[in-house]
Simulated assay, not measured.
Amino acid sequence: MVQRFLPVLILLGCSFGLATPALVRAQANQGFTFTWGEGPSGRQQLQYHLDNGTPGFMGDRYWLRLGQQKVAINRINITYPDYYNGIIDPKGIEVRIGGDRGNRFFQFRRDPGTKIQLAEVSVDRDNRVIDIVPAEVIPAGTPVQVILNNVRNPNNGGMYYFNARIGSPGDIPLMRYVGTWILSIANN
């Protein structure tokens, strides 16, 4: 009986192995990341996803996950390095709350969450700062992600540290460091 089904099982196993690369999205990233010196520790690294991630690619999308925070959020501040020469479109910035990433293997099944209204969005290219103010305060414990649409990637590949800070409602408007996205843009 086993000998009868063995060729079928082998054939199914081989065909699944050949179909697997079609399910993997380009630049899903978060592969091996080595940090040293003043870089963020493993617990400070934030998760992200690039739709393309190719140098010079116009119209890329960055999914930058802040995750669940212990405090409410009324401002999101993202800084990026001076050697990042990509172009970020302020009109293409959105914030989503909730959602489910789904299974790590099947990335296409994730729920992107609900898009929220933003009161103010600014990109200061001189100081390399993206400042986002939601129309309403995001409650503590809510999964949050920032999506940068219509991004033109830098002309050269490399690793780029995007730092995240959040502001909480209260008397003292201090920005709190949340973590760093270590974006890897590489030649395919």
Rank of each mutant, 00 (worst) to 15 (best):
T54H: 00
E120I: 01
R110F: 11
R128A: 05
G56H: 07
Y62K: 01
D82C: 01
D82A: 10
N85K: 11
T79F: 02
I116T: 07
G86F: 04
G102C: 00
N52A: 11
I87Q: 11
V71P: 02
K91Y: 12
N85D: 11
R104A: 08
P81H: 08
D111G: 13
P55K: 07
H49M: 03
M58W: 10
D100I: 10
I73T: 15
I130L: 15
M58F: 10
G42C: 01
I97S: 04
D51G: 02
Q47W: 08
L118H: 14
T114F: 01
R101V: 14
I97Y: 01
N127C: 04
N52D: 05
V123T: 06
P112H: 10
G86C: 06
V121M: 09
I87N: 09
G59S: 11
R125P: 09
Q69R: 15
E120A: 10
D124C: 05
P90W: 01
F57M: 10
R75H: 14
Y80K: 04
V121P: 10
I88F: 13
R75Y: 12
Q47E: 08
T54Y: 02
E94C: 03
R43T: 15
R61D: 03
T79E: 09
N77L: 07
V129N: 12
M58Y: 08
E120M: 04
K70M: 12
I116K: 02
Q107D: 14
I93Y: 11
L46K: 00
R43L: 15
V71I: 15
Y84E: 00
Q45G: 03
Y83M: 03
N103E: 07
A72C: 07
I87D: 09
F105T: 11
L66F: 09
R61Y: 05
R125T: 13
L50K: 00
Y84K: 00
P55Q: 09
I87T: 12
V95R: 03
I76F: 06
F57V: 09
I93W: 11
G86K: 03
G56R: 05
G67Y: 11
I116M: 05
D111P: 11
D89R: 07
R109Y: 05
S41D: 14
N52Q: 12
P55T: 09
I93R: 10
R61V: 15
Y84N: 00
L50I: 02
Q107G: 12
D111I: 04
A72P: 01
F57S: 11
S122L: 00
N85S: 06
K70V: 14
D89Y: 08
Y62S: 00
D124L: 04
P81L: 10
